[in-house]
Design a protein around this nucleic acid. Structure first.
Lengths: 152, 152
DNA sequence: TATTGTTATACTCTATAACTATA
DNA sequence: TATAGTTATAGAGTATAACAATA
């Protein structure tokens, strides 16, 4: 095995580790909100609703179609967690957490933070080491072949 | 904001970064194999088939139901990428890559390795720093409340 | 005409349950 | 009886297209 092969193999191993870590984190989130009676889809929407927001914005943040937000909003409304309030521009409807929704939102935030694996498995120093590495990784997507960007 | 609050907030930020990085990596993989005409589900199966394997093993590695493997195998067979060969125990069927399947597998492996973001965005030293951190993160799942494990 | 949200519908991915064959 | 794979079916999650209300 050449040095370059070894580099490739190690990079692939790290990629798999990375994916494994995130899958675990997602499973943790699902379990946490599941205990609060919520599917992940609704929990994610609630977490984003720090203040009343047009459905369009939510669609952007969740990177999904507006029609799907309608369905999420219906479910959240049925559960009494949000209400639709008219915006200034009357085409908009804002999704606003009800009192119950706000309470649930803080319970989610607390439970998620308490179980954050980054907090439990790494020291402060290790997190400080990890942060810049993740920031470097989190750039624009790798250019697909034939893309406009020839850098790197 | 207390020190503890700041710690929580930073851990949450890192968790989001981590998820973002992996989403990018997955999108890269999907784009790469998409150019080779494969959906992610089939590509993952091909990558795992380094040698003929019982469908049961594949189900375990992909963490999905055996019935789903049947459907993946059907699709791979239709494309001429695998054949089902009988195992010694005649209950088993081994999935074996065809010549074409082997060729495609190495094209996938090469394309994925070439575009691995870990290779492009981090130096050798940075990867060496990252590895042990990921290994520490990649342990057993965080214990759900009420679980048998009271450590931490 | 362009934008927001809604409705009806359809698609993808994956699981469950019942079944066949082999052990 | 237990295990491997198959079949038929169903569900979750999400998108597309056509539409109504508003700008």
């Amino acid at each position: 095995m050449t040095d370059q092969d070894a580099r490739l193999a190690e990079a692939n191993r790290l990629a798999e580790l990375l994916v494994g870590v995130v899958e675990q984190a997602k499973a943790d989130f699902a379990a946490t909100v599941g205990e609060l009676g919520l599917p992940v889809s609704l929990a994610r929407a609630i977490v984003l609703l720090t203040k009343p927001a047009p459905m369009r914005d939510l669609a952007e943040q969740l990177r999904c179609d507006r029609s799907y937000i309608t369905s999420l909003a219906d479910q959240l409304e049925e559960r009494g967690l949000i209400t639709r309030v008219p915006g200034e521009d009357r085409r908009y409807k804002l999704l606003a957490l009800t009192e119950e929704g706000v309470a649930l939102r803080s319970r989610i935030a607390q439970a998620v933070a308490e179980r954050n694996m980054l907090l439990h498995r790494l020291t402060d120093d290790e997190r400080n080491t990890l942060a810049p590495l993740l920031e470097r990784l989190h750039g624009e997507g790798v250019a697909p072949s034939g893309s406009r960007d020839s850098s790197c």
